[in-house]
């Protein structure tokens, strides 16, 4: 194959616009995630929410290192104090610094949220993708199992698991993750089922790609959109379950603070010292809201119909 030219006019049907001008001057390779990020950035509320979550994560990591107080030590000379320069968010019924408690609560909520989310993804996506991709009998067996998991009340199941496994951060995130992956499995299966029908999967097979290559390289990358969106709603969901467990006294073992426990205690003093419930409730609500906005932004960014 040497020198030859093709008598076709190369540009005659370039109806599609060339790669956007802002990028043509760059020499870096464009990636799928670059495009996603550019689309995500357009939604300002989502972007601010993402920054807020990053800030929360940083706070949860750095906070315990630099705080002048810890969550264990009681101070009976400073009970129910109003916010002051020393205690920015006041103190609780044990004289502990509220800000410190909230930051530790934040750390625990994030660990439980992301941890449970990870467990859900691992179990749900594996089961859903296998069922959707291979179909037939395997699909039937796996999805009946999913149906059973879906039918059982997951909060009660989590409760039982906590009782059986014990009460620490890890068992709690496990108890939440293990009981709430059914929705993720159904979503993953539906995604894989629809992607499996598209021509590019047949193209991949005709090129000789193996099943595992097809699943990991072509099916899953195109299925992650809705899965990530769902995850960004499931993380705050897991946080809610965790605080629910704390609220009824089966969450993280005191004195380690949890938002649910803080709100539970605060509710007893809502008339006398409202800041005990106000601050944890507000941070909790803002955190949940931020995750939800990020989820919205992700959903729009993954929408392929959107131009970039």
């Amino acid at each position: 194959m040497g020198e030859f030219t093709i008598p076709v006019n190369k540009n005659i049907d370039s109806g599609g616009k060339p790669p956007s001008a802002e990028h043509s001057d760059k020499t870096t390779r464009r990636s799928y995630f670059g495009v996603l990020w550019r689309r995500f950035k357009r939604n300002k509320i989502s972007l601010i929410s993402l920054y807020f979550i990053v800030f929360l994560i940083a706070l949860a990591i750095v906070g315990p290192l630099i705080l002048p107080f810890d969550y264990k030590t009681m101070d009976y000379t400073a009970l129910y104090q109003k916010p002051s320069l020393k205690h920015w968010m006041g103190t609780d019924d044990g004289g502990r610094d509220m800000l410190t408690l909230i930051i530790y609560g934040l750390r625990n909520a994030l660990i439980v949220g992301f941890g449970a989310g990870l467990v859900e993804i691992l179990i749900g996506v594996t089961i859903g993708a296998l069922a959707g991709y291979f179909g037939g009998r395997l699909d039937n067996i796996l999805m009946r199992f999913v149906d059973i998991m879906f039918a059982l009340p997951s909060f009660l199941l989590s409760l039982m698991l906590v009782v059986v496994l014990g009460r620490n951060l890890f068992t709690i995130l496990l108890a939440i993750g293990l009981t709430s992956w059914a929705g993720m499995a159904r979503l993953a299966r539906a995604q894989v089922l629809s992607i499996k029908q598209v021509d590019y999967i047949e193209a991949a097979r005709s090129l000789g790609a193996s099943n595992s290559v097809i699943i990991f390289r072509y099916v899953l990358p195109n299925a992650v959109g809705p899965i990530f969106v769902s995850l960004s709603f499931n993380i705050p969901g897991a946080m809610m379950v965790e605080s629910g467990l704390s609220l009824i006294g089966l969450g993280i073992m005191p004195p380690m603070p949890s938002w649910g426990a803080l709100i539970n205690i605060g509710s007893r003093f809502i008339l006398s010292t409202p800041h005990l419930i106000l601050y944890p409730a507000i941070t909790f609500a803002l955190t949940i809201l931020a995750f939800t906005f990020v989820g919205d932004g992700l959903r729009d960014a993954f929408d392929a119909k959107q131009s970039d």
Binding site: S14, G15, P19, S24, V35
Partner: peptide, 16 residues
Amino acid sequence: PEAYYDAFPHELSGGQ
């Protein structure tokens, strides 16, 4: 065109 190397399929016309 070579410029399309880093473009994504949906950015091209049907013929391309």
